[in-house]
Design a protein around this nucleic acid. Structure first.
Lengths: 211, 211
DNA sequence: GAATCGAGTTAGTGCACACTAACCGAAATC
DNA sequence: GATTTCGGTTAGTGTGCACTAACTCGATTC
């Protein structure tokens, strides 16, 4: 799966970098984003300085301003990338799954992959949403809403007896379950092997949703 | 359930306030803690100033230093209170449940109550643990570990076929599910009635753990 | 009722840090 | 090969904020 961070930031600027400098700039931008996701996840948005962001990719702090208008824009790019990746992934999954049960299985698997692969982003996603300015927050929220509604659609096809409000609530609870891995990753007690984890998470999520 | 915030802060100081001023001081301390939990949950630890903490309870900022040595100590008191409440509650539940299945049901119910009743504390709990100094963080971590082990004990009695590592991992995932409510509380789409939520959460948690 | 205590006040102090200004030099453009 | 562009640099600047100092005045103590 493509990382949510290596995309170009602005919406639909078709032109890829042709020149040497352009490619280096795109690389640096992506490097800043991944480093920032890790740092924000570790210390929180407010606990990371612009200087930290710079040195994490081998430059001094103010160089970051050549790539982002400010610290908040870095966070915005991370969160927008993440929620866009989730929505795109969900829509791709749904387009290629004929039966609802298979669609839910694939949706769960997709989300597990994301949570395990981009743990940093997951942590930042639900911790720092409020640090965004009105506009960016609105976009992220709207994408998140769309993602949830895809889950609700599938669930209501599997359980048409249940109210949509309940299914939506269940979906949120399932996300809490799935997104718990980044948190429990920091806790000492030994964890099952990485392959096992995937299976357990899928099993638990399915069971909780369909219970 | 007693709020985790209205206890006196230091460990085992038996003397309750006898005088009028002493009572007022205890009240103010408790008020600061609950206000701080709400503010920290809303804006994050770094997003709240000492002045905010003061004005939230009707005094100016520096008055807070009459009750806590610093901002970090306020956070520490919140987190220590929360984890102590959880451990105490779990131990009380276990002491009064003979069979493992009933114990797990009670444990789940207890945690649901806490998550719904002290949503602010839940949010702060897993967001701001790293902002604590070494000593306080160690204490909170150790209490959290104890809480988890109580769950693992019960689970391993119900499912002795499973490895402890898997059960611990499942417990963490269940906490993620249970603690999702404070997060989904902020999201627009309508939620089921509060009584219904309780039942759904208990059902989902049980199903996910025993699947 | 005099002496002390202590929870509050206002007025700093110092520092961390987001962001800006001015400059530099190599790549890109002509 | 001259000119422009631009990603980097260092050296500020301004602000927000945790925390301190010095004081006030009612409650507590003797």
């Amino acid at each position: 799966m493509a990382s949510p961070l290596d995309a170009h930031g602005s919406v639909a600027d078709g032109d890829l970098p042709r020149t040497e400098r352009g490619r280096q700039k795109a690389d640096r931008r992506a490097a800043i984003l991944t480093a920032a996701a890790t740092l924000f996840a570790e210390r929180g948005y407010a606990g990371v300085t612009i200087e930290d962001l710079g040195t994490a990719v081998g430059v001094r702090g103010p160089a970051v301003y050549r790539h982002f208008p400010g610290k908040a824009a870095v966070l915005a790019a991370i969160l927008q990338g993440a929620s866009r990746t989730l929505v795109d992934g969900a829509e791709r999954v749904l387009a290629s799954s004929p039966d609802p049960a298979g669609a839910l299985r694939s949706l769960i698997r997709f989300h597990v992959d994301f949570a395990l692969g981009d743990a940093d982003v997951i942590v930042v996603q639900d911790r720092e949403l409020d640090r965004l300015d009105r506009e960016a927050r609105h976009e992220v929220r709207s994408l998140q809403r769309r993602y949830v509604e895809h889950w609700v659609d599938i669930l209501s096809r599997l359980r048409p007896d249940r109210a949509e409000a309940e299914l939506r609530f269940r979906a949120h609870a399932a996300f809490g379950l799935l997104n718990s891995t980044p948190h429990s990753a920091r806790i000492p007690g030994r964890r099952p092997a990485d392959g096992t984890i995937r299976g357990i998470l899928e099993e638990m999520t399915w069971a909780s949703l369909m219970s």
